[in-house]
Amino acid sequence: MSTPRNAIHLYEGDLPDDIELGSSIAIDTETMGLNPHRDRLCLVQISAGDGQAHLVQFVPEHLGGRGYGHCPNLKALLQDSSVTKLMHFARFDVAVLQHYLGITLNSVICTKIAARLVYTFTDKHGLAYLSRELLGIDMSKQQQSSDWGSPNLTEEQLHYAASDVLHLHALWNKLEAMLIREGRRDLAQSCYDFLPARAKLDLLGYDVSDIFAHRA
């Protein structure tokens, strides 16, 4: 599904001062890889579920950008407990955001955790698969492994990045209804409340070893 270009808003380093996004936002990130300590945060995508995508690009200072130290509006939004943050595979996104922005997120909802709790008749829980099955939306993943560290993102990259947040509200509505139906909404919330701590454990190197596991 193609996103109209006028629905994509790109900013460098921070959200604008006058932006109003409401009490529920969808969030995704693009990085140089999957190791937060090695692979830098390049882009944060946000949508209020209104068909508009707001993309904040981080360009390192040695490439002429502002780095990560000048984004008070984005940090305030992410730390606002009154704003629900919808993510897919929030464990990674929360860890990256906490590591690079020096904050602790809260009020996080993860659609992948929801899917794994109620969509148990399949082992497929990716965003593209769930969007197709539950929303009838085909999402291209062609740009997933492209160079997000470039200071000049392509139109294809911008459209891909926007697509990852534009449909999360609708997906969560479907999955939350299933969680309630199966009596697992409270269990899901317990998982969501633990996500900031789970991300801190990952950043400390406990992403493979499980501190809850019994070992002699």
Rank of each mutant, 00 (worst) to 15 (best):
L78Q: 08
G65I: 07
G51L: 12
A76K: 13
M87Q: 02
S107R: 14
K85T: 10
H54D: 06
S82D: 13
G102F: 11
I103A: 01
D80F: 06
P60T: 06
G51Y: 11
L55F: 03
L105I: 01
F58D: 02
G102Q: 11
G102L: 06
L101G: 02
H70F: 12
C71N: 05
F92R: 04
F92L: 05
H54Y: 12
H62L: 11
S82I: 04
P72T: 05
G102V: 04
N73D: 01
A90P: 01
L55R: 00
Q52A: 09
Q98Y: 03
L77A: 03
A53G: 00
L63S: 06
D80L: 09
Q52R: 14
G51C: 03
H99A: 09
G102R: 02
L86Y: 01
L63C: 10
G102T: 08
V108H: 03
G51I: 06
G65Q: 07
D80A: 09
K75V: 12
K75P: 02
R66Y: 14
L101S: 08
F89P: 03
P72F: 07
D93P: 12
R66W: 14
Y68I: 00
Y68E: 01
Q98I: 09
H54M: 14
D80E: 14
Q79D: 10
A90E: 07
C71K: 04
A90N: 11
A53Y: 05
G65N: 07
L74K: 08
V96N: 04
Q52W: 04
Q98A: 08
V59A: 08
